[in-house]
Design a protein around this nucleic acid. Structure first.
Length: 469
RNA sequence: GCCCCCAUCGUCUAGCGGCCGAGGACACCACCCUUUCAAGGUGGCGGCACGGGUUCGAAUCCCGUUGGGGGUGCCA
């Protein structure tokens, strides 16, 4: 890449109502490159298919991009442009191709094309109208006259890819109703916007020779191509909305942090130098090279994403974590109380959605009881006795300055010893009585926060339930 | 069917002819730590798809096979 040429990259999604994680990765690749090369990142909404054209969807794309750090406010960002707004130019370009002999009209319907293909045994359009000299007219499509020879696509990630033009049919430029098709619209837009690098998913590789021919026929200098591998599911199929969880918004709603998502996405098909893949964006931006992108499809592994996410949660400062957690907490929860337990939650949460359920017992009037856990723990023959003793011992701490985690711990352990229970076992009944569960944040710290009165009340209520009072 | 792309641990990857008896991360297993659960620490399991070349030497280059993927619309 020539760093002096002021590179212009683009991201050209079609609005679909959700933002695909694969699209996010492509956008990020473009973004990282645009920034490192001192170029521009152009957003173009490919809204020419009526079925895919709703204004609010564009809003969704911009929101999603902003979430992963691609902001319309950044000077590197340009757009959004709308493909539909350039429709006139697309038609004009197609007509120029016709005038120059690079394209011709054809009056065959789709069915007729298929019939001919079937009859001849050769798939695709057979060039039937190539030399019929038809003019434009209703129902007539304009087709590109694919020249003889070979089209070579120089691809930054794939290398040199050769296409025998004999295998490329005379593709449609303008539909029977006169509207332009993707191939022209895309190429014309890229030319009009001065795009120098087309970085997109591998599924577009077969389009590259066609678009390159269009650029050339239109008198342009084709861009640098780069086709990055697609993201696949566990079955190694391209991630699709139908069977896979692909919406970026959904991961966001599940409590994934944007920088974790960004970092993870960037390691799919590429890796930063060194022994860790967890690296700040600045390093990614400085190190990312298309030439280093892997050639094979990558499995989008939510398990690994989660691992990244918990790393990122733990990397937050306590203050950052509090701010991050706030929207995930019910409004009525006391923030000061939460702040005191927060560090213990921060090192346990895998996603932000884990946070509230982990500490809800501190805020609810009564803990939600896991019945299976209750039965199991309270079923021990020593459980009720131990609990009763703990109630008594804790009652003495109430109202003193000794209602502190260390004291609560040693007190319970002393009681546990009388029942021949090690600390790990001994704390279980108390934990279930107070939190309703067998797992959760460290117990004595939680009790300290809950207070002697509420702890006592919950223990008493538990004793009630097991038939001791 | 045809065209194109691809092939290192289960997964994501490092590797660009000797430094590789293949490194890291996630996952998994064991142990340690431990008030539960996590985290952390230590160790372990596990891979160059196969077959031919080229070369003094191949995970790395070439060819083939097999296996995967993408495309094949008057969608984008």
């Amino acid at each position: 890449m020539d760093p002096t040429s002021s590179p212009r990259l683009r991201f050209a999604p079609s609005p679909t109502g959700y933002f695909h994680v694969g699209g996010a990765r492509t956008a990020l690749y473009n973004w990282a490159l645009a920034r490192r090369l001192g170029g521009r990142f152009v957003l173009r909404i490919e809204d020419t298919d009526e079925a895919r054209n709703r204004p609010e969807w564009t809003e969704g794309i911009i929101d999603a991009l902003a979430w992963i750090g691609i902001s319309t406010d950044d000077p590197v960002f340009e757009g959004p442009y709308f493909q539909s707004s350039l429709a006139g130019e697309h038609v004009a370009a197609a007509e120029r191709l016709h005038a120059a002999g690079h394209a011709y009209y054809c009056d065959l319907t789709g069915e007729q094309v298929q019939e001919r293909a079937k009859a001849s045994g050769r798939p695709g359009y057979d060039g039937y109208s190539r030399d019929r000299g038809l003019g434009s007219g209703p129902g007539r499509v304009l087709r590109f006259r694919v020249p003889d020879g070979v089209t070579v696509v120089d691809d930054l990630v794939r290398g040199r890819v050769e296409f025998d033009n004999a295998n490329i049919e005379d593709f449609v430029l303008l539909r029977g109703n006169g509207s332009p098709m993707f191939l022209v619209a895309n190429a014309v837009d890229d030319m009009a916007m001065g795009i120098t690098h087309v970085v997109r998913a591998e599924e577009h590789l077969p389009n590259a020779p066609k678009q390159q021919m269009l650029w050339e026929a239109l008198g342009g200098e084709p861009p640098v191509w780069a086709h990055v591998p697609v993201l696949v599911n566990e079955q190694r199929k391209k991630l699709s909305k139908r069977r896979d969880k692909v919406a970026l918004e959904q991961y966001r709603a599940e409590g994934f942090l944007p920088d974790a998502m960004v970092n993870y996405l960037m390691t799919l098909g590429w890796a930063p130098a060194g022994d860790t893949e967890i690296v700040p964006w600045e390093r990614i931006e400085a190190e990312f090279r298309l030439e280093d992108v892997n050639h094979s499809p990558a499995f989008f592994d939510v398990k690994k994403l989660r691992a990244f996410n918990e790393e990122y949660i733990r990397m937050r400062t306590p203050e950052e974590f509090l701010a991050e957690a706030d929207p995930w907490l019910p409004a009525e929860w006391d923030r000061a109380t939460f702040a005191r337990i927060a560090p213990l939650v921060q090192e346990r949460a895998k996603t932000m959605a884990d946070v509230a359920p982990m500490v809800d017992f501190l805020f609810l009037p009564d803990p939600e009881v896991d019945e299976a856990a209750w039965t199991k723990i309270m079923g021990a023959d020593w459980a009720a006795g131990l609990l009763a003793d703990v109630r008594a011992a804790y009652a003495e701490l109430a109202g003193t300055d000794r209602w502190r985690a260390e004291v609560l711990k040693s007190t319970l352990e002393a009681v546990g010893e009388r029942y021949g229970q090690k600390p790990g076992k001994a704390q279980a009944p108390l934990r279930v009585a107070v939190t309703g569960r067998t797992i959760g944040p460290p117990l004595y710290e939680s009790l300290e926060l809950l207070g002697a009165e509420e702890t006592g009340r919950r223990v008493a209520s538990a004793l009630d339930r097991v038939g001791v009072s």
